[in-house]
Simulated scan of single mutants.
Amino acid sequence: MGYALGVVIAVAVVLALVLVLGASRLRTLSRRVGSFQCGARPARPQAPWSAGIAQYGVGRIDWWRCWSLAPRPARTWHRDRLTVTGRAPLDQAGQVDQYLVRCRYDDVDFELTMSSGAYAGLASWLESAPPGRRGLVV
């Protein structure tokens, strides 16, 4: 009985440690300057959404999955290769002030969800690209 109890305690400690690390990572990512909540999915019908946090970098946006312990972003989109192809308000199911943003990166289409303020920041960031990069936002 002592061995089984030791295993249960070890599993509980590991699980608690993973939860604490995950919560700490999520808190750290969401408090960084230039970060915003942003869901992402491939632009396919019925594709699942992944909750995440995006952060502006120098000439790029890094996107981190919320429920992950990965030390690196799941996606990185460079400004000179990212294009917004459309947006639509999400007024369904009580999602007030949310937009569905359709994007293209290296000929791959995907969708993001974000607040109207985050979309305004994204559009401004894309439009402030160096000269010669026009037409990044629809």
Results as ranks from 00 to 15, higher is better:
residue 2 G to R: 01
residue 2 G to F: 04
residue 3 Y to P: 00
residue 3 Y to G: 02
residue 4 A to R: 12
residue 5 L to W: 10
residue 5 L to T: 05
residue 5 L to H: 13
residue 5 L to R: 12
residue 6 G to E: 12
residue 8 V to C: 08
residue 9 I to A: 13
residue 9 I to F: 09
residue 10 A to C: 08
residue 11 V to T: 09
residue 12 A to C: 13
residue 15 L to K: 11
residue 16 A to G: 11
residue 17 L to P: 00
residue 18 V to Y: 14
residue 26 L to M: 06
residue 28 T to A: 10
residue 28 T to G: 03
residue 31 R to M: 01
residue 34 G to L: 09
residue 40 A to L: 12
residue 41 R to A: 10
residue 41 R to K: 15
residue 42 P to Q: 14
residue 43 A to K: 12
residue 43 A to Y: 08
residue 44 R to S: 04
residue 46 Q to H: 10
residue 47 A to S: 15
residue 51 A to W: 03
residue 51 A to V: 04
residue 52 G to D: 04
residue 53 I to L: 03
residue 54 A to D: 02
residue 56 Y to S: 08
residue 57 G to D: 10
residue 59 G to D: 15
residue 59 G to R: 00
residue 59 G to C: 03
residue 63 W to L: 14
residue 63 W to I: 11
residue 64 W to D: 01
residue 65 R to S: 09
residue 66 C to V: 05
residue 66 C to Q: 14
residue 66 C to H: 08
residue 67 W to V: 08
residue 68 S to H: 12
residue 68 S to R: 07
residue 68 S to I: 11
residue 69 L to Q: 10
residue 70 A to L: 07
residue 70 A to E: 10
residue 72 R to F: 07
residue 72 R to T: 05
residue 72 R to G: 00
residue 72 R to E: 02
residue 73 P to W: 13
residue 74 A to V: 00
residue 76 T to C: 14
residue 76 T to M: 13
residue 78 H to V: 08
residue 80 D to P: 05
residue 83 T to S: 04
residue 85 T to A: 09
residue 86 G to Q: 02
residue 91 D to G: 15
residue 91 D to P: 01
residue 94 G to K: 06
residue 94 G to S: 08
residue 95 Q to K: 15
residue 97 D to S: 15
residue 98 Q to V: 06
residue 98 Q to Y: 02
residue 100 L to C: 05
residue 100 L to E: 04
residue 101 V to F: 02
residue 102 R to Y: 07
residue 106 D to E: 14
residue 107 D to C: 00
residue 108 V to S: 03
residue 108 V to L: 02
residue 112 L to A: 07
residue 113 T to S: 11
residue 114 M to Y: 07
residue 115 S to K: 00
residue 116 S to C: 08
residue 117 G to E: 08
residue 119 Y to H: 06
residue 119 Y to F: 09
residue 119 Y to P: 00
residue 120 A to I: 00
residue 121 G to V: 00
residue 124 S to A: 12
residue 125 W to Q: 12
residue 127 E to V: 10
residue 128 S to H: 15
residue 129 A to R: 08
residue 129 A to F: 04
residue 130 P to Q: 09
residue 133 R to S: 12
residue 133 R to M: 14
residue 133 R to K: 10
residue 135 G to P: 08
residue 136 L to P: 01
